[in-house]
Design a protein around this nucleic acid. Structure first.
Lengths: 166, 166
DNA sequence: CCAGTTGTTTTGAACGAATCAAAACAATGT
DNA sequence: ACATTGTTTTGATTCGTTCAAAACAACTGG
């Protein structure tokens, strides 16, 4: 183990060596310096896709207690511009982040519990949709958000109705 | 002119009588009380679709100087639940409001100047899109936002390049 | 046409999410 | 190892929005 690798462990990270080096590689090859907070955020994002900054902060903190929320915001911003993560902003919720980038997939959000799932693009890849009349716009991206009830919430509402009705 | 109508004029509204009563009618038939701030907000929204609360506040203020920003938020919230206005929340911008409701149209946003235009739904009406795999969700709505450069910004960027390049 | 009820607006404060700035610090290239 | 460059911490601040209570105004029924 090199001195550099040791410093990540010293900082409190408990990553399998293979995991850590894969994460480090993707950070490095995005042209960014590899740091403990960046590894921790990227790992948290792997485990918890569609998380907001605060949730990631919580996850990162348990690995790396000294980390600040602002650091998480900074890491996410640099990851965003480097193309390592994608930021989505569904109406009424804070920004969410995911590692799945490069494809033009969409999202489905539960109106009751706010859970988010990925939805693959129906037609080819980016951009999968073309407006009928673009009004002179040069359209670069189409973003689709489906809203509905997730399977679990459909069940929850059903059993709630049973309890309330008779 | 009845005493009730006079009070709207007294409050500073300068609406053509026909306009005012049309607006009042739609507020009333949505089951809401007709008030001066509500008329002013609804009129501002007619003139300035895709406006945020602050822009509407500015417009309302010139008609009705005593109005508070919180009143505008309150009016917009009640209009929203009454189905009189639709709220859209494009990533990175405050909430925008429009009177066009009931159809499932979408929006195209300029990434440079943030101007918003309506885009009609490609296939029938609500919901115009069905995800390939809804993952057990009961899908109720599909919201599409197109991102691109508006015609004016394409021109602006072109002339800017000419100036900068040689 | 007036009074009571109900709902709306004002006033003032507070909140969550995100950003800014400067100083302390750490990762890479030589 | 050192210098450079970029990152993180610390602390404050912004913006958009919501909350709460008291003052007030629109509709309804007498």
């Amino acid at each position: 183990m090199t001195a550099t690798e040791a410093s990540y462990d010293d900082a409190g990270l408990r990553l399998a060596a293979a995991d850590a080096s894969l994460l480090a590689d993707s950070i490095r090859s995005a042209g960014l310096k590899v740091t403990a907070p960046r590894l921790a955020v990227l790992r948290a994002l792997t485990d918890l896709p569609h998380s907001n900054a605060d949730a990631l902060f919580g996850a990162v903190r348990s690995d790396l207690p000294g980390t600040s929320l602002q650091a998480v915001y900074g890491v996410l911003a640099s990851f965003g511009t480097a193309g390592l993560v994608r930021k989505i902003e569904p109406a009424g919720s804070p920004a969410l982040f995911e590692r799945r980038v490069g494809d033009n997939h969409h999202h489905i959000v539960c109106t009751r519990c706010s859970v988010v799932h990925d939805v693959d693009c129906a037609v080819g890849h980016a951009p999968c949709l073309t407006p009928v009349d673009a009004l002179g716009f040069d359209v670069r991206a189409a973003e689709v958000i489906y809203w509905g009830l997730c399977a679990q919430c459909q069940l929850d509402i059903g059993s709630q109705a049973e309890t309330a009705a008779p």
